[in-house]
Design a protein around this nucleic acid. Sequence first.
DNA 1: CCAATCATCGGAACCGGTTCCGACCATAGC
DNA 2: GCTATGGTCGGAACCGGTTCCGATGATTGG
Lengths: 335, 335
Amino acid sequence: MPRLDDVARAAGVSKATASRALSGASGVAASTRERVQRTADELGFRVSGAARRLATGMTRTIGVLTPSVNRWYFGSVLHGIAHAADAHDHDVLLYDLGAFGRGGHEKFERFMTRGEVDGLVTITWSLVGGDLTRLADLGIPVATVGEPTQHTRSFALDDDAAGEQAAEHLVRLGHTDLLHLAAEPEVQPFEASSSDRRKRAFERVSARHGLRIRPVQTVPTTLEGAHAVVREIIDRADRPTGIVAGTDEVAMAALLAAHQLGIRVPEELSVIGVDDVPAAAAFGLTTIRQDPAQHGEDVVAWIMAALDDPDDEPDRSHTAYAPVLVVRSSTAPPS
Amino acid sequence: MPRLDDVARAAGVSKATASRALSGASGVAASTRERVQRTADELGFRVSGAARRLATGMTRTIGVLTPSVNRWYFGSVLHGIAHAADAHDHDVLLYDLGAFGRGGHEKFERFMTRGEVDGLVTITWSLVGGDLTRLADLGIPVATVGEPTQHTRSFALDDDAAGEQAAEHLVRLGHTDLLHLAAEPEVQPFEASSSDRRKRAFERVSARHGLRIRPVQTVPTTLEGAHAVVREIIDRADRPTGIVAGTDEVAMAALLAAHQLGIRVPEELSVIGVDDVPAAAAFGLTTIRQDPAQHGEDVVAWIMAALDDPDDEPDRSHTAYAPVLVVRSSTAPPS
DNA sequence: CCAATCATCGGAACCGGTTCCGACCATAGC
DNA sequence: GCTATGGTCGGAACCGGTTCCGATGATTGG
């Protein structure tokens, strides 16, 4: 494996000049640069990432802290991040916190102070307690996607608007008796979660339109987790005419349960979710769409900008994405 | 940020000794080691990963090449990898090839020769053409999970057995008229894919039991992709009594389509899948289970062992995981 | 009591780049 | 024609560890 020294010698320049030529720095004659470039190619030279890191202090890597990797939302964000990072010629280091068993906290501690990344993005629910605050003091750009946060730059769906739109959609169809199924994350989030936000949005709409008051039911976020409990909830005589689910997975669980109980959708029961997961279309699920991959792209773009910019005021703003209603066949006027 | 020098000075030893003490190398008096360790803690010393990498040539990082990240299979493998890597105190660098747009090949090329990882695992369909072969010559342990492969160590479900078990299950129930829905990956794999293997297993079972011959139908792997085409296939007068789907997603698509067409499952149609994704239980889907997270754990364990072992013969063996049948309510004798 | 052995430690080279600073040369301006 | 200016380039320090090798002192065996 040829070193920079070799390239320099072969091209008849100094190591310093070779470095400049290859890294695209200024102060090198065009002809020289080209020559160095060429001999580097011929020799099959690759800069040593390790050496570059040591010298520059930059890792060309961004870290991602995520509570999970194989749920749609997280996976999509991660995908967006990977795409954008690659476009900026950066690597992505994955920290699957869910994988960290019980020792999660110490691992996190150790990781934090290791300086293996230039920037960090945490996905919702990743951090608890004061971790996020400490993270923000890391000296590198830190951003959160999935929920608004005080301590870092953040990106997320506008959950208030999403929750309202979902409920309003059913109200406009004529429903007056709705039930909200709040999706509860496995691990309790630090600040008010999107689940809470959607729930409160539902309650606002209920109050505004004087709907029948039914206590919000809290169920697991996942299809498999929610299924049994949702089924039991639906299997009652005084069932609502419409269900506003906090998540598509919960909504799909409701659809499945309804089917198994012989309840016709949307004739006897309307169901609306939030997310627009890929399977939603096949289910004919009316839902509120969000595009997590885009969030991932945006968060990386922000990190890159923060990396370039001279270190001005830390930016802790929040960008909320507007939800969009996608009407399919799981909702209709009550009969 | 204190350096090793500082720790050494503070502890009254040389940099060399401090290094040995902290890295756990031998040749250091127990008392000295403890003293160094203590002062390191007090000073809040963290080794510089960059410096260590440069000096040792080891990165304590393993790379993962995956065609996607938000499909159950890939996500699960990745989860297993992350878990195991963490247990071995290694980081994981994620290469979401799906994110690499068109330039995927060059990116791959560049990545290959960068030496940012100590070991590499590629997940099914990641590589095409001779890439895998070249990867294996990288000088670092390389393994594949998802399909048996000639060029690297590999781990995968025994697709032949899985395909046979699925078909046999329906045959034992008395079905004689089956249809196989082969799940076709978005990008064509290098070698015979698991899809092919399952398909051929189905054909073997068909021949063995003299079942009615229906040409295998090839459909997209994903629920959303398969749904429309499966629906059309099912919506015919001479529909089979049973469907063997190459994938749970395809099977669920069939279930959904059947429901929408008013076809009762399992009375009028039996459906069996492969995977046992989390949602399968809620669907009541009979399926052949595999545990990709375990594959991920195992592949990391192998890499770690390969890293420790003196460089003996390259191990290119394959471990096939035995499938297990999970019977639920989507299959029954034909009526 | 002396020499051989062993455990422990320090010095210094090395990993492979980046970058500050100064030298040098050519052109431009007066 | 001479000096100020700017563009190129080389030398060398530096990033922060690891590890080879030799020195030292203590212990053990004869």
